[in-house]
Design a protein around this nucleic acid. Sequence first.
RNA 1: GCGGCUAUGGUGAAACGGUUAUCACACCAGUUUGUGGUACUGGUAUUACGGGUUCGAUUCCCGUUAGCCGCCCCA
Length: 472
Amino acid sequence: MPAKKKAEPAKTKKKVPAKKASAKTEEVPKKKVKTPELLRGFRDILPDEQGRWNMVRDAIRNIAEAYTFDRIDLPVLERTDLFQRTVGKATDIIEKEMYTFTDPSNRSVALRPEATASAARAYINHGMLERPQPVKLWYMGPMFRHDRPQAGRYRQFNQAGFESFGVHEPIVDAQLIVLGVQIFKDLGLDVKVDINSIGTPECRQAYLAELVAYFRQHRSKLCDEDKKRLQKNPLRLLDSKDETTRELLDGAPQILDWLDEKSKEHFMKVLEFIEEVEIPFTLNPYLVRGLDYYSHTVFEFLPADDTGEKAQNALGGGGRYDGLVELLGGREETPACGFALGIERIVRALGDKGIDPPQRPQPQVFFAQLGDAARRIGLNLYEEFRQAGIPVAEAFGKNALKAQLEAANKLNVDLTLILGQKEVLDGTIIIRDMESGAQEIVDVKKVVSLVEKKLRKEEGVAPITQSPVVEK
RNA sequence: GCGGCUAUGGUGAAACGGUUAUCACACCAGUUUGUGGUACUGGUAUUACGGGUUCGAUUCCCGUUAGCCGCCCCA
């Protein structure tokens, strides 16, 4: 709500003596109400941006339906515990980024920082393990992380996620990746997939020991940040941006060498499958993910032209999380795999690439009115046109015909209907062709069908519907 | 959470210590009575907020807030 709105512009009144008017405005400005500011990292998604958002939302929904995923809507607020147990206590997300608070019933609750845990919780809560597996779910909605905002990073941001529960087969991982890539393709975005396997918790453990041992030897060369990582989260050393660390990485043990046979086989099969469908992927042995629950396959979607220099680049990511369901008290060894997409980042990528949403069909008819009697009729006419499938623009709020025609002109309509006092009395209405300026007085009862006819003539055979033009 | 840059009307910019803060676009109203695309007139900013320095601050300093960039982390 724009707090700007000045008192009451004397719109309807003819002429207020200038003195009075100014005297009036001088009385008002006493209390200047301060407009509340947006919370840091929160934003409005304005009408102008909705076109692109809709493109993304539609692309996601279409793919979800085509791949027979079922929509699920999960609460935004959950017990804090759900995230602590799943995402990992030592992760930044839990340690410092979660919106945690005590609710009025004195429970510790948190705004969800992500939704995979909730999906797994729902899977268990509603006995979905009794349904034919895999259970394929998708969702879309806001997530909350109290991080330092930057372009492409907000405290409230939207994710769309796909989760597949109950099947361990590598084809599941592969299909998820394919499906994700397909969404980007539909949007006209080129992406590449970075992929890696971090194996089972057991082999990861063994690997980590080795990795830590390796870096301990070179500890003195590490930057402070990486020394901390060595302590806290050594896996993170793998995607360090520090020059020397990267060099050291060349000689470091590789996680792929530490995978057990099964993990290795699983991973190879995933790769084979996605190779099969010609998805460009990069085996990135340094790709690790920030959430504790991942195992085996992990992957990220990156812009194809990504240089790796920019920070907020990943458009989405995910992986397998075979331990999660069990961790939440579900059936033992329930496998699962999924990924999430960052809607804001995709929308931004579309903008960067200059990909625009298909134009919404604009009204070709404008209704101009003079006086309240005409407005009343206009209200009814508007609905008649709507039912006939003809969008009509109006400026009911304006009085002067001139102003209304100006508005009509700006909207670039073909036809303007003019209804004044005289026409109201006669039961007629004027149809004005905006290009030629020719006017025609017609029976108001027939105006809808007449307009329909005129429009059809103008368009020739052109259909009204617009197809999404994105495909290239 | 750490470091850096920035902050002027709806938008984009100008002024950079000195009279009523300038310009473009947008918006609103009007240019005598019911007709657009042009033209003209007028209206719309306590220069993010709060302090300080100064005779005087949009301009200098400090704090706050917010945005952006890098780190951390992640989508």
